[in-house]
């Protein structure tokens, strides 16, 4: 099963969300918009280069994914507990998890592992 899981996850999440199989999914907290589809792979909100029309600095024909996420988090019928995590300070991507199943990493809590120096307390958005 663990070998099959990444294939299944990829087959489902790629067509819907453009999933890049980072192995540490945060879709629930970003209005179901995958931050790894940002050309800069930013996980903590939009860069300063967003165009006046809301499109991406790097790909002028694409809406900035963080503009999209900001709209969708309120529009989609998501639980408020998910919305509350929108402004969380997400840790740097663990490159070791690339290509693995985020579902499995969630169940085993592998996706909760942080570098020893990372201040977990700073992650939660306050008020």
């Amino acid at each position: 099963m663990p070998k099959l899981l990444p294939l299944i996850e990829d087959a489902i999440k790629k067509p819907i969300w453009g999933c890049q199989m980072c192995g540490q999914c945060v879709l629930h907290s970003t209005g179901m918009v995958c931050p790894m589809t940002c050309p800069k792979t930013l996980r903590n909100g939009p860069c300063g280069g967003v165009r006046e029309n809301g499109n991406c600095e790097v790909k002028p024909e694409m809406q900035c994914i963080w503009v999209k996420a900001f709209e969708r988090k309120d529009k989609l019928p998501l639980p408020n507990s998910w919305r509350a995590h929108y402004n969380d300070l997400r840790p740097p991507v663990d490159m070791q998890l690339k290509g693995t199943s985020s579902w499995l990493n969630f169940l085993t809590k592998r996706d909760q592992k942080r570098p020893a120096g990372w201040p977990i307390l700073a992650e939660k958005s306050g008020k």
């Binding site: 800069k40 600095e57 740097p92």
Partner: peptide, 28 residues
Amino acid sequence: MLTGDDVSAGDEPEARRVFDLDGPQAVV
């Protein structure tokens, strides 16, 4: 600490962009 413009804004757009961290993570 800042995220920074993309490589496509410069004169070597064929370069690899890194963004291993983002601006807020770099502050941390």
